[in-house]
Design a protein around this nucleic acid. Structure first.
Lengths: 203, 203
DNA sequence: CACGACATACCGACCGGTTAGTCTGCGCGG
DNA sequence: CCGCGCAGACTAACCGGTCGGTATGTCGTG
């Protein structure tokens, strides 16, 4: 038997459930051409279904985007919490978290490209929700920097807020220059960027 | 008589020439709502003219965007060349350049927001031209880092390319978090970010 | 200075094409 | 035979761009 869930009918020739196929197609196309330049017609064609299917599972085109955001946001928050709450010196926790966000960003480069480029296409309500989650993430990261600054292992020359924005800026920017077929692996890039952050924070 | 250039007819109630008004309106609206979400009708209404006027001065909606890019690109390249070619130790030249790009980015925040968010809306030809200019800028900056690494005043732990992308990432990101009514002046932000770069480059 | 020829600056109605979203109905598993 | 999951035609709105027309100069010439 093929790999297929118990609820048949929700899958077909593609082998994967229709909602996932739609989300995957939308993610790829949004990352390639941007949200506005991608029509729902193109999405449903890429997923091998029709508009009826899309609007059966999603309320609107916005919903598709919001779903993409939700996935990557939840993933990164979860991982950050894991690293931040570990039992290790603060400089190791920050370094691990700073490197990990780079790796997961590169591994989900399509999602994150969309995230940073199309945020303003969301309706005001969903936009606020996303901003709030993003803010939580930011603050968790900042708390790590502040902890290191309080205990003296990091320099306090720069406000922690700015340090975090500095690092996330480079993460945000990855979609603009990182090429999977380039010379550096995600891990190597992550190590370099984390190094830069830690070196900037040396007392 | 009022302050009005010799070639009357090109100005009216606004007092400023129509092409400038169109460009200013387009810049503001593109930065606020994005390129695709701004209709040419909205642009001409904000500028107090009609579509006839817009297509009299500009070939297409793309042209408007390209013009915005050209302005900020020329400005920043010019300033970078000035700082890079100065007669001073390389660490002072890099620091000055790194801080200056932050200041000019903040001072033209609308333009740079558009730049990084809407680049992919340009046609392939204009897109290549913009990318080429951007690349020149990037390489000029990288040369400074490499010079410092060669002469031993900067650490060579991280490839110069990555260092430049790291810094430009934070610059790129400014439009997402810097608020003109915030606590920090552009100059203060620039000093902090340049500090972070220089500290990361310490041997 | 008078006057016709031409140029510039702009208006606003209009058009072909595209879009997100809706609605009706069909096939099939239970 | 019911209803879930989906097909696909349809629509109303909107968009970028075009075009004929007009008002206001400017300039060459006699």
């Amino acid at each position: 038997m093929t790999t297929r869930t118990a609820t048949a009918g929700v899958t077909d020739s593609g082998g994967r459930p229709v909602p996932r196929r739609l989300l995957a197609a939308a993610t790829r196309l949004f990352a390639e051409r941007g949200y506005d330049r991608t029509s729902v017609q193109e999405i449903v064609e890429a997923a091998g279904v029709t508009k009826g299917a899309l609007y059966h599972y999603f309320g609107s085109k916005d919903d598709l985007l919001h779903e993409v955001y939700g996935r990557v946001l939840r993933l990164q928050q979860e991982r950050l919490d894991g690293f931040a709450g570990a039992d290790a010196p603060v400089e190791q926790r920050l370094r691990a978290a700073a490197a990990d966000v780079v790796v997961t960003t590169i591994e989900n480069l399509d999602d994150t490209k969309i995230f940073f480029r199309s945020m303003h296409h969301l309706g005001p309500e969903k936009c606020k929700q996303v901003r709030a989650e993003r803010r939580r993430y930011h603050e968790r990261f900042r708390a790590l920097v502040e902890e290191g600054q309080r205990t003296g292992v990091f320099s306090s020359a720069t406000p922690a807020d700015l340090v975090v924005d500095y690092h996330f800026g480079s993460v945000h920017h990855l979609g603009s220059w990182y090429r999977p077929d380039g010379a550096l692996t995600p891990r190597q890039v992550a190590d370099h960027l984390a190094d830069l952050l830690m070196r900037a924070l040396r007392p």
